[in-house]
Simulated scan of single mutants.
Amino acid sequence: MTDAGRDFHKPVRRATGELDRLFGAHDPADKTRAAHSTAAALLSRVRADPDSETVERLVTFTSTHGIDDIAELWSQAPARSLPGALWRLYLLQLMIHDDPHTAALLYERGRVEIASVDPVVAGAPVPAAPDELVALVDRIMRGAFAGDFAVALERAAAFCRVEASGATHVADDYEPTEPERASALTTRALRLSTYAGDLSASAGLWRRESLT
């Protein structure tokens, strides 16, 4: 999957989902409160008793259940909030799982081009094969639920920056001959860069006990 519109497998929203019935389709404030409370309850419960089976179920949740249920809960939350950060972690994981070959191509190009320590922070092997990137993003997810949450967010942000760098440079390669593909990659790079900023900011808020 290389089309930017499918990067994060945007879910089809149900017209009358369960949350609409529970919290009211016309009261977004209730949905916002639900997003924050469910994210906080989930994370605090798992981190208080990080049973390996529970953590594994959360890491593989989208593979088993898809993204729709999580989207109903967290997709409309502010980017720099606890539910917003968890939503972006799941989207990043889904992007890698859906097309690990493109992810590996962009990551390796970004690793070579980027002038920062982000490849070291992200922690991928050199070079990173597609299956190794899948394993890496799953480790980052495990760290979010059972390790240092801020570190997991920073690793995910670093990963996004490397991927964004790779997407930008590959887009430049395609611009003379395949402008549409170049445009799709540029859009992907912008989205990843935005996610990187949001995840880094969320890590800082978590360390100040201000991520809610």
Rank of each mutant, 00 (worst) to 15 (best):
P125A: 14
A146P: 01
R139C: 04
M95N: 10
A150L: 04
V120G: 00
L82P: 00
D27R: 07
G143N: 03
D27N: 09
A150T: 02
R21C: 00
L185S: 08
P28W: 03
A167D: 04
A104P: 09
R109Y: 08
P176R: 11
P78K: 10
A122H: 11
F145H: 00
I67M: 15
D49P: 03
I70S: 04
A15E: 12
T212L: 11
T194D: 13
V162E: 05
A167E: 02
I140R: 04
E175I: 01
A171C: 05
L43Q: 03
T62E: 15
R181W: 11
A152S: 08
V134K: 13
L94H: 14
S183P: 00
Y107M: 00
A164N: 06
A85I: 10
D172Y: 08
T38S: 12
A203S: 04
W87F: 14
D99V: 07
A171I: 03
S63M: 02
D68F: 07
H169W: 13
G5T: 09
R111H: 05
R188W: 15
D68E: 15
I67A: 07
L133D: 15
K31M: 07
F159D: 06
E209W: 09
I140Y: 01
P28C: 09
D3L: 13
D138P: 06
R155M: 08
D118W: 12
V120C: 07
L192F: 12
A104S: 15
A122F: 06
F61D: 12
D131Q: 15
S116C: 08
G84N: 09
A122K: 07
G110T: 05
V46N: 01
G5V: 13
A129T: 13
L82A: 12
D98H: 14
T54V: 15
L82T: 11
D99T: 03
I140P: 02
T186I: 08
P125D: 06
D27F: 05
T187N: 12
A135T: 10
D131P: 00
G66V: 06
G17C: 05
E163H: 11
G110A: 14
W206Q: 11
A35V: 06
A156D: 01
R13K: 05
G5R: 15
H36G: 03
E18Y: 07
E53C: 07
L42R: 06
R139Q: 14
D30Q: 09
D30F: 09
D20L: 02
R181Q: 11
R80N: 06
D98R: 14
A122I: 09
D198E: 10
Y174P: 01
A41N: 05
